[in-house]
C-alpha cells in the first residue's frame, strides 16, 4: 500500500514538473517523424526512437528528481517516514517505467511497427527499470547536476551505442549479453528474444541490488543526521 502511495506521489510530481507534457510533445513529434519515413524503415526507426528515448529517459531524469528532493528536504522527510528504502526505489522505478511504457505504446501503436506487443512492452519496461536504477545509483553519488550528467555520459555511450548498432545487425552473437543489445533484441522481437529476456532479468537484478544498497546507505546516513 505504501508503495502504491509512493508511485502515485511520484506520478503527481512528474505531472507537476512537466514530464507528462514533455513526453506528450515528444510522442507527437515521434509520430510525425515515423509517418514521414519510408515504409521499409519504420520497424528499425520505431525501435531506434523507443530505445534511445522512452526506454532510457529515467537515467537522465533520475538525477534531477533525486537532487531536487534532497535540496527541498523532501528526502529528509521520507527518511523519518515509515517507508523502506526498497519502497522509495521501486516507487520511482515503477512511476518512470509507466511513463516510458505509455509513450512507447502510443508511438508504436499509432505510427510505428511493433512486431510483437508482448516483447515490445517487456523491452520498454525492462529498459526503463534498468536505466532508471542506474540513474538512481549515480544521483546519490553526486552532489550537483553537472556532476551527475558527467557521471552518466559513459553509461549513455557504452549502454546505448551497442544497442543502436544491433539494429543494423552488425554485432557478433555474444553481444546479446550486453543489456542494451538484449533490450533491442526484445524490442524488435528477434530470434533470441527469450535469451535476451533472461539476460535482461540478470542485469535488472544487478542494477536493483546496487541501487538498493546505495539508497539504503543514504537512508542510514540521513537517519543518523536526523538523530
Amino acid at each position: 500500500m505504501k508503495l502504491l502511495y509512493l508511485v502515485i506521489g511520484d506520478i503527481r510530481f512528474q505531472i507537476k514538473y512537466g514530464f507528462y507534457f514533455l513526453y506528450a510533445v515528444f510522442s507527437v513529434l515521434y509520430i510525425i517523424i515515423l509517418v514521414l519515413l519510408p515504409q521499409n524503415t519504420i520497424k528499425t526507426a520505431t525501435a531506434l526512437l523507443i530505445f534511445t528515448d522512452p526506454s532510457v529517459f529515467g537515467l537522465i531524469f533520475m538525477g534531477s528528481i533525486v537532487q531536487f528532493e534532497i535540496t527541498e528536504k523532501t528526502f529528509d522527510s521520507l527518511c523519518i517516514a515509515p517507508i523502506r528504502p526498497v519502497d522509495y526505489l521501486f516507487g520511482k522505478l515503477i512511476s518512470l517505467s509507466l511513463l516510458s511504457w505509455i509513450v512507447g505504446m502510443l508511438v508504436g501503436l499509432i505510427a510505428g511497427d511493433i512486431p510483437n506487443l508482448f516483447w515490445f512492452s517487456v523491452a520498454i519496461i525492462a529498459g526503463s527499470m534498468i536505466f532508471s536504477a542506474v540513474g538512481m545509483i549515480f544521483a546519490f553519488r553526486t552532489d550537483t547536476l553537472n556532476k551527475f550528467f558527467l557521471s552518466i555520459v559513459p553509461i549513455m555511450i557504452f549502454g546505448m551505442i551497442p544497442g543502436v548498432l544491433h539494429l543494423f545487425d552488425i554485432l557478433p552473437w555474444w553481444m546479446i549479453f550486453h543489456p542494451g543489445v538484449a533490450i533491442v533484441e526484445m524490442l524488435i522481437s528477434g530470434s533470441q528474444a527469450i535469451v535476451a529476456l533472461i539476460i535482461t532479468l540478470l542485469w535488472m537484478v544487478l542494477a536493483f541490488w546496487v541501487a538498493l544498497s546505495t539508497v539504503r546507505n543514504r537512508f542510514g546516513r540521513e537517519e543518523g543526521d536526523n538523530r
Binding site: Y17, G63, S64, I65, Q67, F68, L145
Partner: peptide, 8 residues
C-alpha cells in the same frame, strides 16, 4: 528549478 530545467 533544475528538474524543470532538464525537462525544458
Amino acid at each position: 528549478n533544475k528538474v524543470e530545467g532538464i525537462a525544458v
